[in-house]
């Protein structure tokens, strides 16, 4: 699969080759593909979404590209990839077992309590001297049209599950959070500016709102789902906001 530039740029200055990697929140496999392509000796792609686990395995596991492990042995993607369907609040890996952790577009789908617990877990599985890459979005400016769509998605999620679907943390907040856990801040770079929210993103967010709305009190749910769909259609697409990449080291 094509590896997004957001991923390749975030990984470009990290020692992926020969590393045991953990992709926290695998999504549709983009970062997992980037790690495999960059020569990771092992990639654990963890997601709690069965559809994402399947698509990551299908899209990345079948890649025929060969990379060298530290011992010089060359193996294909399937031999180096383990897609795990699991809760990141209880990562099924031992303490100190990975050298590089990526969380690409993960934190914005975590509310503060979940974020806090996952930060603890990432800390637990990180080996001394390991690297951490956290890529996410700054809060959108007040005049961004897509804010309205995300507000509706959050309203539906709050009513259905009691928590927000999306939280855009400023880079400084995530930096300070990880530093507070003992990670040493290494660098920040801008991945996207502006961020292109395309018609396909907006339609995916409208669909997400609709799936939360199913579990809302009926009239409210229908209204929110319809509102999300209308907003996605009206906005069409919008390029706004910034996606950033933070990198940290775990003290040896």
């Amino acid at each position: 699969m094509d590896i997004p530039r957001t991923v390749s740029v975030a990984l470009a200055d990290r020692p992926v080759e020969g590393s045991r990697c953990l992709e926290a929140g695998a999504g549709v496999g983009a970062t997992t593909a980037g790690l495999v392509d960059a020569g990771a000796s092992r990639v654990y792609a963890i997601t709690n979404d069965r559809g994402h686990a399947l698509s990551t395995r299908e899209r990345v596991g079948d890649e025929s590209g060969l990379s060298a492990a530290p011992n010089g042995k060359r193996s294909g993607a399937a031999d180096r990839l383990a897609v795990l369907e699991a809760d990141l609040r209880a990562i099924p890996l031992p303490d100190g077992s990975v050298d590089l952790i990526t969380a690409h577009g993960l934190c914005n789908v975590l509310d503060p309590p979940a974020l806090s617990r996952i930060v603890d877990e990432l800390h637990r599985v990180a080996a001394p001297g390991s690297h951490l890459v956290v890529d996410d979005y700054d809060p959108l400016p007040n005049d961004a049209a897509v804010r309205d769509l995300f507000a509706v998605e959050n309203a539906a999620s709050e009513l259905a599950t009691g928590r927000s679907a999306l939280t855009f943390y400023p880079s400084s907040v995530l930096r300070d959070l990880f530093v507070g856990k003992g990670w040493a801040f290494d660098r920040e770079r801008t991945l996207l500016d502006p961020v292109p929210w395309t018609a396909s993103h907006l339609s995916a967010h409208a669909d997400a709102a609709a799936s939360f709305a199913v579990n809302c009190p009926d009239v409210v749910g229908d209204l929110l789902a319809a509102r999300a769909e209308r907003l996605a259609a009206e906005i069409g697409n919008e390029s706004v906001g910034r996606m950033y990449s933070l990198a940290f080291r775990f003290p040896t």
Binding site: R5, G27, G105, L192, P194, S200, A204
Partner: peptide, 19 residues
């Protein structure tokens, strides 16, 4: 940003919330 926008316009994978 422009590469990313084109990638999603052209993507075979539906339901991508992120970049």
């Amino acid at each position: 940003s422009l590469i990313e926008a084109a990638r999603h316009d052209d993507s075979p994978v539906p339901e991508q919330l992120h970049h």
